[in-house]
Design a protein around this nucleic acid. Sequence first.
DNA 1: TATGAATGAGATTTCATTCAT
DNA 2: AATGAATGAAATCTCATTCAT
Lengths: 211, 211, 211, 211
Amino acid sequence: MKNLARDGRTQETASSILRAAREVFAEKGFGGARVDEIARRAGVNKATIYYHIGDKRSLYEAAIHNVVSRTRQLMQEGTEHEGSPKDKLAVIIRTFAKVVDENPHVGPLMLREIASGGKHLPAAVLSDIAGIIGLLTGITEEGRRLGQFSEINPFLLYIMIVGMIILFKVSAPLRKRSVETLGAVVDTNDAVAGPVADSIERLVLNAVRLN
Amino acid sequence: MKNLARDGRTQETASSILRAAREVFAEKGFGGARVDEIARRAGVNKATIYYHIGDKRSLYEAAIHNVVSRTRQLMQEGTEHEGSPKDKLAVIIRTFAKVVDENPHVGPLMLREIASGGKHLPAAVLSDIAGIIGLLTGITEEGRRLGQFSEINPFLLYIMIVGMIILFKVSAPLRKRSVETLGAVVDTNDAVAGPVADSIERLVLNAVRLN
Amino acid sequence: MKNLARDGRTQETASSILRAAREVFAEKGFGGARVDEIARRAGVNKATIYYHIGDKRSLYEAAIHNVVSRTRQLMQEGTEHEGSPKDKLAVIIRTFAKVVDENPHVGPLMLREIASGGKHLPAAVLSDIAGIIGLLTGITEEGRRLGQFSEINPFLLYIMIVGMIILFKVSAPLRKRSVETLGAVVDTNDAVAGPVADSIERLVLNAVRLN
Amino acid sequence: MKNLARDGRTQETASSILRAAREVFAEKGFGGARVDEIARRAGVNKATIYYHIGDKRSLYEAAIHNVVSRTRQLMQEGTEHEGSPKDKLAVIIRTFAKVVDENPHVGPLMLREIASGGKHLPAAVLSDIAGIIGLLTGITEEGRRLGQFSEINPFLLYIMIVGMIILFKVSAPLRKRSVETLGAVVDTNDAVAGPVADSIERLVLNAVRLN
DNA sequence: TATGAATGAGATTTCATTCAT
DNA sequence: AATGAATGAAATCTCATTCAT
């Protein structure tokens, strides 16, 4: 019992640190994030971060890994029981849209990582990404075998899906600012799951279908 | 005569600073960039940067404005003489692909800006972006009037075009690393102008056409 | 029985802590030593050190006292039954050489202490040193009374004996490194008991004899 | 003129930093020294140390090198014009005694370095030490050729000379404290050049002479 | 008796910025 | 127009120590 209680606390501390790290790294990027602020938001002493996780870069890697591996897992689970390749693609899109809606830090985190060419991605994360691409490869191959899909580069597909969803999501503030400052008439809706995901789904299915 | 020579040198100094700034900000982001490194890459003393341009933020804004305003200008010029909305869209896509191919720092710079919600975008840059969206709005409206396009949110279109091109471009190192580390079989081609831009063009035209 | 067993274990824990402390303080000095590392080498939790011994300074003092008092005791015992002043000096030299050979941490520990002027030496240690000097004083006085020794400052004698033995001992790595890096041709033997102690003995007896 | 003035200031800054570093490292050892205190004693901002010299370890190495290379140089110069091997040895002893008297930080610095086995000595310093040992090797070889000296290990000779002088010097506070605390009757004189160096000279010449 | 977790205080190092020249 | 030197402020990281269990 004692150990359970202790482990519970430890677990809690570590995950509140990771949560805070996700937030701050997403908002400011690696270089702009301050360990001090992460500690403050996690409600722990700065040294506690070093005790539980390690230096700033380890913290960053843990945060990213956390997010990406969960995303991959959800996608994998979601597609296990689906029938047609089309349905599987749809599930992937909707799953990712939901993840991004529910966790507002996924988008910026992944985007920044992409922007720096994944130069600092730890192997674990890279392998998660490869896992997702692997999923897509399986789906497109099955689609081609069944005569439903044209030939498509799974990496391009990955970028299309993940990229567009993330970009839509993270561009929300920009869209709002455009409206306010410039009077532009654009959608200022934040949610990507729902109509936006539907558009993207149609777009993607259009893109891969045999014509 | 003296003054002209001096101005010439001044001009040179300033633009080598801006070039270095683009590079470093693109690679590291605002927070990760070091004024020291920008000075080193520009081949000038750090104080010279302050003399010519100002503080770090001004330098960042100058670098980004530089890039975005040129992009907008090229798009505008390219579409002025084109006929159909379809052709105009195609020009925009190809222009941007070319810009991104020729200036490898545009992608990361813009991506990071988007990732932080454009929180720090100076008004000048915002208005350039609005200008581009305005271009797209004009094109889609014309397309609808002519019964060629379905209704489409110009901001979504902007994201589709700009986002996919940039994402493809910046993901080159990641794709390469995937290949090396994980044996994935993906396209490791860097250039986006050409076949990739063609794919994106088809995709976009598919997306906007009336079905 | 239980208590004895417990005491036995306690004893063990405490002495493994002291052993580790000697090691680390000898290698790194007081300022360079880390309580963390001492705990690791002792195979106990850091807090256990505080429970058994106290803070870093107490630990340091315990470690040094441990070493010096044992040295003094051995010297005293060794000279109690010897006859001539010369023999007593010889015993002191050989005893110290043996102590230093058997406990490689004595040298560095004492050397560092001397280097900082004994500023932090606890009274107990100082009194042990005084005891050793007292031994030497007794021997030189007896030697003078018997017309065998010239007048010699016992502190200088102490430094000669202790200093040279320690210096020879601790310079072993430096000698080795000189050989490897610079091709110097020097003795790289570690042991000081034996021929080296013999040389020092001759030197010291030469130094104190009436000429 | 401008440049000279500037260089003068730079030179001054750097050497006041090195002077302060010698002091503090000598008093506290590497681990116990604080960069803050070195900056304070040098009368400069902490960052200035990093600007001119680098991190703490570089600073330490610069300080040691500074001291040891000067010592070597003085010994070399002093023995160039002396005649007999005996005279040369005497010069070396007196030179070193003088150096140690005039620069109170040499002793502790070198002693601590020896205590940690020279583990962190930069090559430059090691080569200075080798130079000194080389000097001694030359002298003893000449002495043997002339039938004046017995065979003696130059490294042992180095330790005898350097070690005893340093030990006498740095033990001054300990001696004083012994007197005060324990009523011991020992020499509390600080200077090593003079009578003490004379004793050491006699001792050393005794040690190397053919008997 | 022993420990994992946590932390306050302080250490080293970095960096944007200024200034005299 | 340009720079080397210098720095204040703040960043990252460390570490001796304590506490609840």
